[in-house]
């Protein structure tokens, strides 16, 4: 990565000049180099690499290290919605209580969709579901820095039948934990 990174940096400087000189888009003055990367997301440290590629990867825990626990229940969503349903809020209250009682655990919230809709949109929808769930837990006193979210969109269905029962099972936020 060392010489390659240096090489990229040199090319980047050269190309930056070309871009400023001959940019086909509107002037890029509002986007100071690197500034777009410095806004930290709630659960991550501020990224600071000067090569575009991997600004924040190090801040993220490895999803495969998390495991399911029986105490944390999935919640579910209406079609194309990412607001928390009243009945599911009660389940989230219980999840929040367990997480507060087990403060040594980090939690990964997975956002999932049913197979209807399209992959790209569902990836964004799953992200919103995980995020709504995270926000609710934070509002109940779970520290934001214990929570990581991931969207799988429609890529990891629990159930593959073409029925509303099955689709409803797939529209979920799922919880996994690991020790700090």
């Amino acid at each position: 990565m060392g010489t390659r990174g240096l090489h990229l940096a040199v090319i980047s400087l050269l190309l930056l000049g070309v871009m400023v000189a001959g940019c086909a888009m509107r002037p890029a003055t509002t986007a100071a180099s690197g500034a777009g990367r410095s806004a930290p997301a709630p659960a991550a440290g501020a990224p600071g690499s000067s090569s575009a590629s991997n600004p924040s990867g190090a801040a993220r825990p490895v999803p495969s290290e998390f495991v399911a626990v029986r105490d944390l229940q999935d919640i579910h969503f209406d079609f194309d919605r990412y607001d928390i349903r009243p009945d599911d809020a009660k389940m989230l209250d219980a999840n929040a209580a367990w997480l507060k009682a087990n403060a040594d655990r980090l939690v990964l919230i997975e956002g999932h969709c049913d197979q209807r809709g399209t992959n790209e949109y569902n990836l964004a929808l799953g992200e919103r579901r995980a995020k709504s769930t995270m926000n609710y837990l934070v509002s109940q006193g779970v520290q934001a820095n214990r929570i990581t979210i991931i969207s799988y969109g429609e890529e990891r269905p629990l159930c593959t039948e073409q029925s509303e029962t099955c689709w409803a099972q797939n529209r979920r936020a799922h919880f996994l934990v690991k020790s700090r």
Binding site: L16, M19, A31, S33, G34, R37, A39, S53, A124, E127
Partner: peptide
């Protein structure tokens, strides 16, 4: 030279433009 893309790093899915050679993000 540019890639429009979706990132949710600032809270929810938003559209950005990445300058491929420099990594500059708008």
């Amino acid at each position: 030279r540019y890639l429009a893309l979706t990132l949710s790093k600032d809270g929810n899915p938003e559209i950005y433009v990445l300058a491929v050679a420099t990594g500059t993000l708008r």
